[in-house]
Nucleic acid binder design. Structure first.
Lengths: 219, 219
DNA sequence: TATGATAGTATATTTTTGCTACTTTGTCAA
DNA sequence: TTGACAAAGTAGCAAAAATATACTATCATA
């Protein structure tokens, strides 16, 4: 094998790998980045924590398979979803060759008040230290780094807060994603053109209320 | 279909997609970003230009398959190679469901003096306007954007020049990747800590020779 | 009504960027 | 031999952005 077998190739005659999608669903809770995981019921890795995933249907687009996995396992629809990386180490599944096209998803915590049965949130920083099923710890680390990098030059942080949010709340999300404290005044200057005020304020806290903002949709 | 068929799954009983790798090999020639393409000999898309690619061996890691494609088709080894994106539109290959795990590679032009038979370089900006085989035009665009973005926060530009290079040469690479002119003095300040002088100078040009530098390996 | 705590603003300082102008050093042609 | 050309390389300034600190504002509660 390993010769050039593209030349006169009938793909159907070769052994093919199976293909799955796995989704790293991130949210922020208790001031930390958390990941949605399921407890595996079957071998291999029965009893261990794993990412929600599914096999890809033979006529199903990859994005749709990832969205389906999230809907089926976590009961979530319409979330921010983007492809992460494709994992193909021949030994990553002990049964046979299975590729995983991984995706990452971002949702505000408010949409995870009632996690689907069999799923729960785990702190991303800590969970990757423990043994997870397959190479899922590595996938989470990869997702963690990706969103950290993207937070600096895109607006993905907004996907982790609700429609309406306060600036301290948004700043906290950025700080968690970037892994560093930010200066209040500087932060506000930087995102000023991405947000718009509402008339609302928070209330009930034993201190000054904060104004509630919305994401400005591009004009 | 499209139900949750991960629960008690024997992957071998389902129809599986075929999996290929395709490599977008970039280099810089004639002051422009260029891509290595091959002319397809077989259907589908016979006679059209396509990325070098190959089917993935059933026990072959994805990275190795991509490296093998480059070696077989372009005669290149040991190049900078990184995964780009996985393309899975069900209609992307008219024959059957075939996924493509795409990679991008960067080499200095000096390593492409004698392109392998059946391959040639084409300007990246222009070629994506023309019809290419499969979704390869889209893959090249994706790679184009990726390296453009990465050029700003990594050292990938160095992969497009040889071991030794002049600063005007390196600056030109950055300018092509970023798509904009840079100021000489500012550019030099910025990369000063990434390079080290050699004693050599260019010669033979009808003007002042330029000093030759090397990439500084981290201490 | 004073206090604690967080929200929000003003302003100073440093670094980076954008830009212009200048000096240096080679080849080539008169 | 020398002056013109051309690109290499350096100096330096102003504007803008990033970094950092200090201040004022406003709520609940005691």
């Amino acid at each position: 094998m390993q010769t050039d077998f593209l030349a006169h190739y009938d793909a159907s005659q070769f052994e093919k790998p199976s293909v799955t999608v796995d989704a790293v669903l991130f949210t922020i809770r208790d001031g930390a980045l958390q990941v949605l995981l399921t407890r595996r019921q079957e071998e291999p890795f029965a009893g261990m924590l794993a990412l929600p995933g599914t096999f890809v249907g033979i006529q199903e687009p990859l994005d749709e398979a990832a969205a389906r996995a999230l809907k089926t396992k976590a009961g979530l629809e319409g979330v921010y979803l983007e492809q992460l990386y494709t994992w193909g180490d021949p030994g990553r599944d002990p049964r046979m060759r299975i590729l995983s096209v991984s995706y990452y998803a971002l949702v505000p915590e408010s949409r995870l008040m009632h996690p689907a049965p069999g799923t729960a949130l785990y702190p991303a920083e800590e969970i990757v230290q423990e043994p997870l099923a397959f190479d899922h710890a590595q996938i989470i680390r990869c997702g963690r780094e990706r969103i950290r990098g993207k937070a600096t030059y895109t607006d993905i942080a907004f996907s982790l807060v609700g429609e309406e949010f306060t600036l301290p709340e948004l700043q906290s999300v950025y700080e968690i994603l970037l892994g560093q404290k930010l200066y209040k005044a500087n932060f506000r200057k930087k995102i000023a053109d991405k947000i718009e005020e509402t008339e609302k304020m928070t209330s009930g806290n034993a201190h000054r209320p904060s104004r509630i903002y919305r994401k400005r949709d591009k004009e």
